[in-house]
Design a binder for these strands. Structure first.
Length: 568
RNA sequence: UCGGGGAUCGUUCAACUGGCAGGACAUCGGGUUUUGGUCCCGACAAUGGAGGUUCGAGCCCUCCUCCCCGAGCCA
């Protein structure tokens, strides 16, 4: 069974794996496979990164290869160690252990030496122009660029100037080192791209050692080559950079075959955003509470919300890899979460919006106090090994307001005057009376129970159409629950106005206080996910006791019917 | 405008070198059920358009249309 599943995974086929097969056949890398996950430490990992992580590691693992984590830390203006730590933490949570952890900044010395080499070969030059000026000269789509007046400086001058840039003799923005390629090239990336820029900023790892910093293009492929990466997987928007990636590597004296880049479509999901800029705005503007607000698609938010790492991994494996720009339904991710949680989450009972139910014929004990019963309920019908637990039961219970109606609509099977339902694992009860407040709102439901139906089964075999959950009033634990809806109302936030904020769902979070929990809920470990029977999966908050976040609701047939009927 | 990519059920991923277009999610219908959950069964539904090659085209050729990415000293 397990082997079959593994085999199934390994027989997965797509254009990237076909490439691996071809490389294996041609002995291009002597059978070696190495990938890397290369985040920039300037933000938190989100669900989109998860796809890349899963792919990078899967490709390596399937081929008995290695996968490193490499921080692409070439821009000191935006990066920070705190992100480095967070990324390592999130990666571990997702379930991956890199074979090594590297930083692009580890290679600054080598990069500098190689830059001097390019200068010596007449393939790089120092440009004294401003950024604006250089941009103008770059031309445009279908419009060739023009060459910089500094393009033909001698190697000696370039070497000297580059050395002085490095020594900090020039202020930021006054000079750059550029590769000398082709200002007429149809690919804009090849129009003398910038290799080094001056930054008078402290780098989170190299401190004040450097005054110049390499650009992404001048660092990435070289880092790959130094580490022995064979397959450099990245997202589609880097497609045009591939020519430059190859060009740089071709100029260098490498003693191993150069790695090569292959692109795939990034993961997009409906009803959310994954751009760093937009996520940051949501946090900065206080739309959400922070980077781990359970409504966000960041990994730490999903973790806090109760998404199992395994569900995310399975989802990423399932959607596969393609070059098509696609936006997956968030429902698909949720279905993986439900599948996983259905198997792993213990069942408990919780009443979110309590309504008192009094059993009028409940017996008293010898001292005249209401009899105290204890019911035994299975912890997980999907897994016998989880055993069962004892749940107190008595004549005063809390039930869900939604589970009682004075005037039940068609197809409503739950409690109503005169109707009999099952209290899950308890008894069959029949509603005999209802106490309402001044406005006619039910505040107390009176029932009579059938003593013959302990456990919920009727000896005479009669059926009831509904089973509802309950919490014994005398032993109930008070707590709160945070209910989450989509953060954005539309599938593609901002598609109408261009600004996702315009599509924000104002009711994306509802916090309920004074919910009634069965006693066992006191013992749920922080972060643990349980199923509140008939309601959904809920994750215990990692900081606050007796606060549960709704991971995802259960499929709800009754809600569906109501929606079909025109909604009410 | 130029270059690079892409287009298959509502969504998404398949269909080995041309051979009955398949799965998942969603939707709809039914069965089982002490969760209106799970599980099971069934239904719905697609090759962007026009030509061409072929016994046969999602796949090959031509033309067209639409979508995404690219003119940071961001990555």
């Amino acid at each position: 069974m397990t082997e079959d599943e593994l085999d199934g995974d390994e027989s997965k086929s797509d254009y990237i794996r076909d490439l691996l097969l071809a490389d294996a056949a041609s002995e291009r890398f002597q059978g070696r496979v190495q990938t890397r996950f290369p985040p920039e430490p300037n933000g938190f990992l989100h669900i989109g990164h998860a796809k890349a992580v899963c792919l990078d590691f899967a490709i390596a693992t399937e081929n008995q290869g290695r996968c490193n984590l490499r921080f692409d830390d070439t821009n000191p203006s935006t990066e920070d160690v705190s992100y480095v730590d967070a990324i390592i933490e999130d990666l571990a949570w997702l379930g991956f252990t890199p074979d090594a952890v590297h930083h692009s900044s580890d290679y600054f010395d080598q990069l500098y030496t190689w830059a001097e080499l390019l200068i010596s070969k007449g393939l790089a030059y120092v440009d004294d122009q401003s950024a604006d000026h250089i941009a103008e000269q770059r031309g445009g789509f279908g419009r060739p660029g023009i060459e910089s007046p500094f393009r033909d400086r001698t190697k000696e001058t370039n070497l000297e100037l580059f050395g002085r840039m490095c020594a900090g003799e020039f202020t930021a923005g006054t000079r750059v080192l550029r590769a000398k390629i082709d200002m007429q090239h149809e690919n804009m990336q090849m129009r003398d791209p910038v290799m080094y820029r001056i930054r008078d900023e402290r780098h989170h790892r190299t401190g004040d050692t450097w005054k110049i910093y390499p650009t992404y293009d001048w660092a990435h492929g070289q880092g790959d080559a130094i580490e022995g990466v064979t397959h450099s997987l990245c997202t589609l928007e880097f497609s045009d950079n591939r020519a430059l990636y190859d060009w740089y590597l071709a100029q260098l004296p490498l003693d191993t075959p150069p790695p090569y880049q292959t692109e795939f479509a990034r993961l997009e999901l409906t009803h959310t955003v994954t751009s760093k800029r937009q996520l940051k705005k949501l946090v900065d503007d206080g739309v959400v509470d922070g980077w781990d607000d359970p409504r966000l698609p960041t990994l730490r938010a999903l973790r806090r919300r109760g998404y199992p790492a395994k569900a995310i991994r399975e989802f990423c494996g399932f959607i596969g890899v393609a070059r098509t720009n696609a936006r997956h339904d968030i429902e698909l991710l949720e279905s993986f979460v439900r599948t996983e949680l259905n198997l792993s989450a213990s069942r408990r009972m919780a009443v979110l919006n309590p309504l008192k139910l009094v059993i009028t014929n409940w017996p008293t004990d010898s001292s005249g106090e209401p009899f105290s019963d204890v019911r035994n309920l299975v912890n997980n019908p999907e897994n016998d090994a989880e055993g069962s637990r004892e749940v107190p039961f008595s004549g005063e219970l809390w039930i869900e307001q939604d589970d009682f109606k004075m005037d039940p609509p068609p197809k409503y099977f739950r409690l109503a005057p005169g109707r009999e339902v099952r209290l899950r694992g308890g008894y069959l009860v029949t509603c005999t009376d209802v106490v309402c407040d001044d406005e006619g709102v039910p505040v107390e439901v009176h029932c009579e129970y059938d003593p013959e139906t302990a456990g919920g089964a009727a000896p005479d075999g009669r059926k009831v159409k509904a089973t509802i959950h309950w919490v014994d009033a005398a032993n109930a634990v008070d707590g709160s629950v945070a209910l989450y809806e989509r953060l954005f109302k539309t599938q593609l936030p901002g598609s109408e106005t261009g600004d996702p904020v315009d599509d924000l769902n104002e009711d994306s979070r509802e916090v309920l206080q004074h919910c009634k929990f069965e006693p066992a809920l006191k013992d749920v470990a922080p972060g643990q996910v349980v199923q509140f029977e008939r309601l959904g999966y809920f994750a215990a908050d990692t900081d606050r006791d007796l606060l549960f976040h709704r991971t995802v609701g259960l499929r709800d047939e009754w809600a569906r019917l109501q929606k079909q009927g025109g909604g009410s």
